[in-house]
Write a protein that binds this DNA or RNA. Structure first.
Lengths: 114, 114
DNA sequence: CAGTATCCCAGACGATACTG
DNA sequence: CAGTATCGTCTGGGATACTG
């Protein structure tokens, strides 16, 4: 039999690191937003609003601001009328893709309901 | 230059999958608990309570029940006095380890404060 | 030892209206 | 178009006390 996977880090150090990281992704909407920006996609505010049904304008704006403040998303404002704002991932934001891919793989391994 | 990583899945399918998976890990404590069970570790309630400073008994019990209901943690009750209950990860729970490892790697890549 | 029960609060989230 | 402002609700989580 094979041993269960053992993390290379210690629980204490890892906990603080991942916990902090997970904080940045918390909430109902952030992952959804990020998914629509993966692969270098550039989206406008209204486009994201359309792509994510059910999100309110308040939440979309709020979550985008937080993602921006946390360094995951880059916001570009074009000073024109009507206004135009584009969102894209930062490099660090893009780097999240493999991790979420792994998480998705895990989700798919889920055994049928116990 | 290299292209940004492009997920193999579409945002729509992936979003529902990862979103659902992330739901199981939501909250302030679940990751901490899981970390202390990785590598096949078996812990008692009181031990977890000691290992995770700041968690209230209510939250520890509540989160453990949810992890159990979600199929991540296995709970063993020894019918004796005083009571003894042990917690360990299920196979699926152990399978989460690489994904969190990836997430930790991402967290460490974080650029210095913008 | 391993929990439950109860009360309480802050913040997450939603709906709607308004604005540069 | 891309947001803010305001209000109300719901739930995650903390503190404390009690129990089989």
């Amino acid at each position: 039999m094979n041993e269960p996977p053992r993390p290379s880090y210690t629980p204490d150090t890892a906990a603080s690191g991942v916990e902090h990281a997970l904080r940045l992704l918390e909430g109902r909407w952030k992952l959804l937003i990020l998914f629509h920006l993966f692969g270098g996609q550039v989206q406008r505010y209204s486009e994201l609003s359309r792509l994510i049904p059910g999100i309110s304008e308040k939440m979309l704006a709020q979550q985008l601001r937080q993602l921006e403040a946390d360094g995951l998303v880059h916001r570009t404002v074009y000073p024109q009328v009507p206004p135009k704002v584009e969102y894209r991932l930062t490099e660090w934001g893009q780097a999240l893709c493999p991790a979420l891919d792994a998480l998705l793989g895990w989700a798919e391994q889920r055994p049928l309901a116990a």
